[in-house]
């Protein structure tokens, strides 16, 4: 009963508080062999989702390890991979 609807000029509903989404907190680069540890206070008490995407195609002539991503409290840590990746941090 309560909530908010947002319409466009044609009267079509574009967004509503009955929707569900994931909001982007950060999208950052981690090099192959590199690491990162970032703190996001906004993650406190929220549901967190992370994902990583390779930047280059893994070669078939050597091991191509993805990074390990851990979320501890409001800190997102990335390490252990041999490949460059983009890390996406989402919350809701």
């Amino acid at each position: 009963m309560y909530g908010m609807n947002v319409f466009n000029s044609a009267g079509a509903l574009t967004y509503s508080t009955s929707d569900v989404t994931w909001n982007q907190v950060d999208f950052f680069f981690v090099s192959g062999g590199g690491s990162a540890s970032n703190s996001y206070p906004v993650l406190s008490g929220k549901e967190v989702l992370t994902a990583q995407m390779f930047i280059n195609s893994p070669p078939s002539d050597r091991r191509a390890l993805a990074h390990t991503i851990t979320v501890s409290g409001t800190t997102v840590s990335v390490s252990g991979g041999s490949e460059a990746v983009y890390v996406l941090v989402l919350m809701r």
């Binding site: 909530g3 967004y15 508080t17 009955s18 929707d19 569900v20 989404t21 994931w22 909001n23 982007q24 907190v25 906004v42 929220k46 549901e47 919350m91 809701r92």
Partner: peptide
């Protein structure tokens, strides 16, 4: 937030 308490829009983050 929605009925589940999940964030929909926040001026601290960015929607896609």
């Amino acid at each position: 937030t929605n009925n589940s308490g999940q964030v929909l829009i926040s001026s601290d983050t960015r929607n896609l």
